[in-house]
Amino acid sequence: MADFQANSRPFAALDRSGRTRRLRRLAEAALTAYDVPVARLTPLGRGVNTMFRVDGADGHRYVLRVQRPDGPSAAQVRSEMAWLAALGRETDLVVPRPVPARTRDLVTVVADPAVPEPRTCVLCHWVDGRFVDERLSAPQLYAVGEFTARLQLHGARMTGLDRGRVDDLTEFGRSQVDGFSDVVLDRAVATAGGDGRIRAALERARAVRAELGCGADVFGLVHGDLRQDNYLFHRGRVRAIDFDDCGYGHYAYDLAVTLDELEHLPQRNVLREALLDGYRSVRPDAATTDPAVLNAFVGLRRVQLRLR
Rank of each mutant, 00 (worst) to 15 (best):
V107Y: 02
D178P: 10
R197P: 07
A256N: 07
V166S: 11
Q76N: 09
R306I: 03
S175R: 15
L87P: 00
R174E: 15
D55Y: 00
R9N: 10
G160R: 08
G193Y: 14
L161D: 04
A149W: 05
D277S: 14
F219V: 05
R104H: 13
H223G: 15
C121L: 06
D229N: 14
G164E: 10
T42P: 05
R187L: 13
V122Y: 03
T108D: 02
D112C: 04
D162W: 07
P69A: 13
A192W: 07
N230Q: 09
L202T: 03
Q67C: 13
V218S: 10
T50A: 12
G47Q: 12
R199H: 07
N295C: 01
T42R: 11
N7R: 15
L300Q: 05
P113A: 13
F233P: 04
S73G: 11
R150H: 09
L226G: 07
M1F: 10
D182T: 15
A82G: 00
G56N: 07
T258G: 01
N295Q: 11
A30M: 06
D92P: 01
P98K: 02
G249F: 04
D167R: 06
N295K: 04
P72Q: 06
H234M: 15
E261K: 10
H223Q: 15
T50Q: 11
A216E: 15
G215T: 09
G56I: 00
A200V: 12
R227C: 14
D105Y: 02
V66L: 06
Y231H: 14
Q176C: 15
F11P: 03
T258A: 09
R61S: 14
G59A: 10
L141K: 02
R165Y: 13
P10D: 13
G220S: 11
P139A: 09
P118M: 06
G173A: 14
N230T: 06
R235W: 12
D290V: 08
D186E: 15
V36W: 01
R283I: 00
A13W: 14
F297I: 03
F219L: 08
G278M: 06
V95A: 08
D162L: 05
G59Q: 08
A201L: 07
F172R: 10
A30E: 02
V38N: 02
V63P: 00
L185P: 02
V95W: 04
N230D: 12
S181Q: 13
A2Q: 09
R16Y: 13
P291E: 04
G196V: 12
D186G: 11
